[in-house]
Design a protein around this nucleic acid. Structure first.
Length: 203
DNA sequence: AAGAGGATCATCT
DNA sequence: GATGATCCTCTTT
């Protein structure tokens, strides 16, 4: 199982990533919450909320490359967020990793996150997830299926998913492109962007 | 339990 | 000059 399973549409790849195991720098975690992101208006998956909506250039180049690579970006100046690139070479798509359940190396993750963090919160939220696994902007563009990479991904069998709108996006705010595993304490809370139009207004 | 606000800076207009 | 694919803390029910 490898990159060929991520070569399709973002929402399909997102489903595949639920339950997958992400290993980075002494910590392994099972992915329990993700969000799908598409590409430009003239591509197969137009998505105004995506970093790649306005075409390739700047930080988003990795999103236009082949699947199975890590796309990292900095959010609000401070936090690092991690995506798994999906689709195929030349067509932008990615899946944001929003929350994971730490199964190996909880002490290491705790040392990175701080002493008072409860186990379920170690990798809850995209910024916290990267912090727990030691993922930084230096990791942008690495191959997640290369045995020599510092961060690696192992896919498993598909699991049943719950869906809902994506967190914090002001565009396409009603699109149900967030997926998570039911009854998981690690899933982050939903917050609609204050800038998004009223629910149901448009997409 | 839920909502409001501020920190902070790379990227884009 | 404005805008966030966030997170933490403080205030209000």
């Amino acid at each position: 199982m490898g990159t060929e399973l991520l070569a399709g549409a973002p929402l399909v790849a997102a489903r595949r990533l639920l339950g997958a195991e992400l290993t980075g720098r002494g910590v392994s975690a099972v992915i329990v919450e993700v969000e799908a992101y598409g590409g430009p208006p003239d591509g197969p998956w137009p998505d105004a909320a995506s970093h790649s909506f306005r075409g390739a250039g700047g930080r988003n180049l990795v999103m236009f490359g082949p699947p199975g690579y890590l796309y990292t970006y900095r959010s609000h100046g401070i936090h690092v967020c991690a995506n798994v690139v999906c689709g195929h070479d030349g067509v932008a798509g990615a899946v944001l990793l929003r929350a994971a359940s730490v199964c190996v190396g909880a002490e290491v993750a705790g040392a990175r996150r701080g002493p008072a963090i409860r186990p379920a919160a170690l990798a809850r939220g995209p910024g916290n997830l990267c912090s727990a696994l030691g993922i930084t902007m230096e990791d942008n563009g690495i191959d997640l299926f290369d045995a020599d990479s510092p961060v690696r991904l192992t896919l498993g069998d598909p699991l049943p998913a719950v869906d809902g709108p994506r967190v914090g996006v002001s565009k396409a705010a009603d699109r149900r492109w967030r997926l998570w595993l039911a009854d998981r304490a690690e899933v982050s809370a939903y917050r609609r962007s204050p800038r998004a139009p009223a629910p149901g207004a448009s997409d």
